Simulated assay, not measured.
Amino acid sequence: MKEIKDPALLETYLRDYELGSVFYEKIRPHMALYAYDRGELICSQGESPEFLYILVKGKLKVFMTNAEGKTLVISFKTALELVGDIEYVQDTDILNTVEAATGVHMIAVPYRILRKHGREHAPLLQFLLNVITKKFYLKSNSISLNMMYSVDVRLASYLLAVSSDESHNPVPGLLSTAELKDVANLIGVSYRHLNRIVLQFCSNGLLERKKGGIVVKNPDGLSKLAIRNIYEY
């Protein structure tokens, strides 16, 4: 993670996403722009948060880890998205771990500044209300869709989410065998069943097995099979 000391770029993001009135002049001087490389953590489950993050470029992966160490991917997020909004409103620890799925740009706003200058600032409160209610609506819709679609559609959708950037361009990389076990948990099937689907995808030219995992060979074919991306919302 590194800070991008470019006030003009920060202002461009605020203008492009129409956030100027939300983060007004008393908040603006305390905002910072950061760049994260793919695989870097923005925040971790259980941590005490200090910042509200605004995703303005790139894609995030949101996941949780249980007491046995198993991970469950919840969703992939693209701009405009907030991290730490529910925690700010509820004054709780971080609910889920958030990782950069591609290179990302995040605007960070300290909670202490929001509490000092934002508690009665109507545009900020309305913005948070819209974002949080949209999250719950999309989450509910995603759960329903996940239950309705077949395993091959769910797997194709997940593979598209994990192997493309925010503009749906392919991102090279290997999906490891360990990650496949997490994928099985996410889409609700046994690891053995998932492997059968992976073999089927390989025989159809959609995937290719390599040492340690799989790579997407035909994203267009996966896209046709997936119908829509269930895990990006």
Rank of each mutant, 00 (worst) to 15 (best):
M1C: 06
K5A: 09
P7K: 05
A8I: 12
L9D: 04
L10R: 02
E11I: 08
Y13I: 02
D16C: 04
Y17W: 14
Y17R: 09
E18F: 13
E18M: 10
L19I: 07
L19P: 06
V22W: 11
F23R: 03
Y24P: 06
E25R: 11
K26N: 12
I27D: 11
I27L: 13
M31Q: 01
L33T: 03
A35F: 09
Y36F: 15
D37H: 06
G39H: 02
G39R: 02
L41S: 12
I42T: 09
S44I: 10
S44T: 14
Q45G: 03
G46S: 07
P49S: 11
E50H: 14
E50R: 15
Y53H: 15
I54Q: 03
I54C: 07
L55P: 02
K59N: 06
V62R: 00
E68D: 10
G69K: 02
G69A: 04
T71V: 03
V73N: 11
V73S: 12
F76Q: 06
K77C: 08
K77G: 08
T78E: 12
T78C: 08
A79R: 06
A79W: 04
A79E: 09
E81R: 11
E81F: 11
E81I: 00
L82Y: 01
V89N: 05
D91R: 14
T92K: 15
D93M: 11
L95A: 14
T97V: 07
T102F: 06
T102L: 05
G103W: 04
V104D: 02
I107T: 04
I107W: 00
P110F: 08
R112H: 13
I113S: 10
K116Q: 15
E120S: 12
H121C: 10
A122F: 13
L124F: 05
L124Q: 03
L124W: 00
Q126L: 14
F127V: 00
L128R: 01
L129T: 11
L129N: 07
N130E: 13
T133F: 09
K135F: 01
K139D: 10
N141H: 10
N141Y: 12
S142N: 05
S142D: 04
I143E: 11
S144E: 12
M147N: 08
S150F: 00
S150V: 00
V151G: 01
V151L: 12
R154K: 15
L155N: 04
L155C: 03
A156W: 02
S157V: 05
Y158G: 01
L160K: 06
A161C: 15
V162P: 08
S163K: 07
D165M: 06
N169L: 14
P172A: 15
S176N: 03
S176Y: 00
T177M: 11
A178M: 14
A178F: 14
E179Y: 13
I187Q: 13
V189M: 12
Y191M: 11
H193S: 14
V198C: 10
L199M: 09
L199I: 03
N204M: 13
G205A: 05
K210C: 06
G213A: 04
G213K: 00
I214G: 06
K217V: 04
K217D: 04
N218T: 02
D220P: 00
D220F: 03
D220V: 10
K224G: 13
K224Q: 09
N229P: 01
E232Q: 07
